[in-house]
């Protein structure tokens, strides 16, 4: 199956919403409004064009949406690096071991304090805790916390917005 065939099988508007949402939040997380003059929606469109032109290779075993989101993650990092000639703010963390665990614990405590101060409720805190534990999928979080999936979606939305704002304040 070609990328074009796989792309035709997904709902176009749903796909664009998911990609644009992710890119919008990613730009906020990277503390920028646009990259090299491109806003989130433009970056999504440019990235799809690049894939169609063969500048990014899709493997058939990867779902189209997941592939495009991974590509957007990489594209935004590249744009920031090329634009500012600095290392991306998000990068692979090679800091492992006991020291790193202690760092993460203090970072987690600090983040929770800030979340509470920003008005986060218990569900948001529990969801954040899931993220720290490496549980990210909404359905898995819902099972873990024994919550209705809609409550998890709402909490994820609020949590994402609060954390991004808090990270922005720290920069």
């Amino acid at each position: 199956m070609t990328f074009n065939d796989a792309l035709r099988e997904v709902d176009y508007h749903q796909l664009m919403r998911r990609l644009t949402y992710y890119t919008e939040q990613r730009l906020r997380l990277l503390n920028v409004k646009s990259l090299q003059g491109l806003e989130a929606h433009d970056i999504v469109i440019e990235t799809i064009r690049k894939v169609l032109e063969g500048k990014r290779t899709w493997k058939p075993e990867v779902p189209v949406t997941a592939f495009l989101i991974q590509t957007l993650e990489s594209e935004t990092s590249n744009l920031i690096r090329d634009g500012k000639k600095i290392r991306p703010l998000l990068e692979k963390d090679n800091n492992t071991g006991v020291g790193a665990s202690v760092d993460l614990v203090s970072a987690k405590i600090h983040a929770i304090e800030q979340l509470r101060a920003a008005g986060a409720d218990d569900i948001e805190i529990y969801v954040f805790d899931c993220w720290i534990e490496g549980v990210y999928k909404p359905a898995e979080i819902a099972i873990e916390l024994e919550l209705d999936i809609k409550d998890v979606y709402n909490a994820l939305k609020r949590l994402g917005n609060k954390l991004i704002k808090l990270q922005d304040n720290e920069n």
């Binding site: 939040q25 949590l159 991004i164």
Partner: peptide
Amino acid sequence: IKNIINEGIKNFA
């Protein structure tokens, strides 16, 4: 933490 947030918003999307 920034990477954790990135993973979180990615999975939501």
